[in-house]
Design a binder for these strands. Structure first.
Length: 578
DNA sequence: GTGCCTGCCCCAC
DNA sequence: ATCGGACTAATTCGG
DNA sequence: CCGAATTAGTCCGATGTGGGGCAGGCAC
């Protein structure tokens, strides 16, 4: 493990990708395959391969206490070390007892110890297992063991660069490595095949998730057309991206992190089970407010409704009634017994329409007790109690072709009128590139008004933002011009601006809590966001979804900041259309 | 023992 | 989700 | 036409809000 930690140090020391790739490739070649294979996973910043649903259930808090227990340091010493580095692993290295000399663990040993942590139940036991692990580490080894435990390795290398390093190490094409990893969902196994020159053996396995193709954002229809002249267009839904594998009477639904989420959406299962053949579909799970006419007509509910269905282990009938869900499919990756990601979107789109029409079950009946029951469900769900409460559960995402930017603008407005987020625009000639973000798929979302807010509190950042005040809590004016917080934001400023702000806040601090500070309410920020929600997180009673700083407003005095009233107006206006 | 709250983790966007 | 920063490959520019 | 300068394509790291599950503590 010492060699691995040294490698990580070297990789972290350079920002050059080619240099990182070479360092790692050389390391892979020097190590036994078993070790190189584990290193490939660890260098990606993961403890388990992507396809695995195993989690450690250990985070900063538990590791912090374990480090404290092992080193016997005070809270103050720990906090000081953490503040120096913004990283618990780096901090622990400073504090590590000299008699922990380590250097006996191999990577397979380390993997075994991670398993012990993963399989123990409860924070107390996990903390003990973390101690057992760290005890066997030298200071440098502990640094990287901790980084892996808390899930932030911060060496400027993730799975994508590890793929490149594997290709370089074993003289395989980058493309074949990426493809094998995509099919296997296991970078360690991919390395093994690459080393043995058997990348071509990797096969798509039904009921094992593939990566999701992602979209680049565009700001305007003109920009969209510059990438794709005649795009295939769909609404952009505010739901949960989901990959469905079905066939052989089985169904698995996978989330973007390749976890199985079918359990949370039992009403979709019988419909998907009726697929005419083995399929892999890509689509979105939506909370759906039906008109109650037995058809799919209706509208998507806001994401917050869907969120209540998410991650549930036990789904009650009431939940299914209160927040009905549908699966809207927009792509097909496997059909006719083969992977079809290399066919064009135009072709896949036709296949999708055909296979969805061949489903034999379209609606899953809710149990009779749920039907028409006088419950506390939201009044707009069904027209009346006698209405058929079920409707088609698996839909084909409506799509069209745009010929111009003007077409797109019209479609965008229609999508917004339907309560959807905006548009997805896809190149009809493009293949499906799992796990990649490119300009073959574009997304365009609504622009919402921005707010001018006053910074009231600041915090030190983590990692590379250690030592700078990079995290800002901001407020709007409430009754009597009293400032009321509405949110926090960290992104949008350049490093230079953050540095400048850090200096200013340091000399205009009202209260210093160490990690955070209350500051003089003088700095005005223009803040953008995608949504406003009611929330008790902040004093104003509202919170922002995806807040980001558009720019500093040195020209604007805090007395002219926006008000809670305006926040409420925006909140209400977005509700009228959703 | 039951019910409720809190801290923590994970994961959806 | 969001954003800025960094690297590299691809493309355009200047002489 | 060639090397330099600029742009485009991608990757990486830091971090926002909401909600469910689970362990553990506390009141009764």
């Amino acid at each position: 493990m010492l060699r691995f930690a040294q490698l990580c140090e070297a990789v972290a020391a350079t920002t050059k990708k080619l240099e990182k790739r070479k360092l790692v490739a050389d390391y892979f070649r020097q190590q036994p395959i078993q070790t190189a294979s584990l290193a490939a996973i660890f260098l990606s910043g993961e403890v388990y391969p992507a396809f695995s649903e195993r989690t450690l259930n250990v985070g900063g808090a538990i590791v912090w206490r374990a480090v404290q227990q092992l080193t016997g340091r005070s809270e103050e010493e720990m906090a000081a070390a953490y503040r120096r580095h913004g990283d618990l692993g780096a901090a622990a290295r400073d504090l590590w007892p000299a008699d922990f000399t380590g250097s006996v663990l191999t990577l397979p040993d380390l993997a075994k110890l991670f398993d012990d942590v993963a399989s123990s139940r409860g924070p107390a036991l996990k903390q003990q297992k973390v101690c057992d692990l760290l005890q066997q580490c030298s200071a440098l080894e502990a640094k990287y063991a901790i980084k892996l435990l808390v899930g932030d390795i911060r060496i400027g290398m993730r799975e994508s660069l590890v793929e490149e390093a594997i290709a370089a190490a074993y003289e395989q094409s980058e493309q074949s490595v990426r493809r094998a990893n995509m099919l296997l969902g296991d970078i360690g196994e991919t390395l093994r095949l690459a080393a043995e020159g058997r990348l071509g053996d990797a096969r798509m396995r039904l009921f094992h998730p593939l990566g999701f193709m992602l979209a680049a954002e565009v700001k305007s229809s003109d920009e969209a057309v510059s990438y794709i002249p005649g795009p295939h267009v769909e609404d952009k839904y505010d739901g949960i991206r989901a990959q469905v594998h079905c066939g052989e009477g089985k169904v698995r639904i996978f989330s973007r992190t390749q976890d199985e989420i079918g359990e949370s959406f039992p009403e979709l299962i019988p419909v998907l089970e009726s697929a005419p053949e083995a399929l892999v579909l890509d689509g979105e799970i939506l909370a759906w407010s039906s008109l109650g006419d037995g058809t799919a007509s209706g509208a998507a509910l806001p994401f917050s409704a869907l969120q209540r269905r998410l991650g549930r282990k036990r789904v009650t009938e009431k939940m299914m009634r209160d927040v009905p869900v549908v699966y809207v499919a927009f792509d097909v990756l496997y059909a006719g017994g083969e992977l079809i990601i290399d066919r064009s979107l135009a072709e896949r789109s036709e296949i999708l329409t055909r296979v969805l029409n061949a489903f034999t079950v379209h609606r899953s009946e809710l149990p009779a007790t749920a039907r028409g029951a006088a419950g506390s469900f939201q009044p707009n769900l069904f027209a009346d109690d006698s209405a058929e409460p079920d409707f088609p559960r698996v839909l084909r995402a409506p799509c069209s072709r745009a010929a111009s930017a003007a077409d797109l603008d019209a479609l965008f407005l229609e999508a917004r009128a339907r309560g959807n987020e905006g548009l997805m625009m896809k190149n009809p000639a493009s293949t499906y590139a799992p796990g990649r973000r490119g300009h073959a798929w574009l997304k365009m979302k609504r622009e919402l008004a921005t707010l001018d807010c006053v910074v009231t509190g600041v915090e030190f950042g983590n990692g590379k933002r250690a030592g700078v005040l990079s995290d800002y809590t901001f407020a709007v004016r409430g009754p009597g011009d009293r400032l009321m917080n509405v949110g926090k934001a960290y992104s949008g400023l350049t490093d230079a601006e953050i540095l400048e702000m850090t200096e200013w806040f340091k000399s205009h601090t009202l209260t210093d809590f160490g990690h955070s500070r209350l500051v003089e309410p003088k700095i005005v920020l223009e803040v953008a966001f995608n949504n406003i929600m009611r929330s008790d997180r902040h004093e104003s009673g509202f919170a922002l979804r995806f807040p980001r700083i558009v720019r500093l407003r040195p020209d604007k005095p805090p007395e002219e900041a926006d008000t809670v009233m305006r926040v409420e107006e925006i909140y209400l206006s977005q509700h009228r259309t959703e």
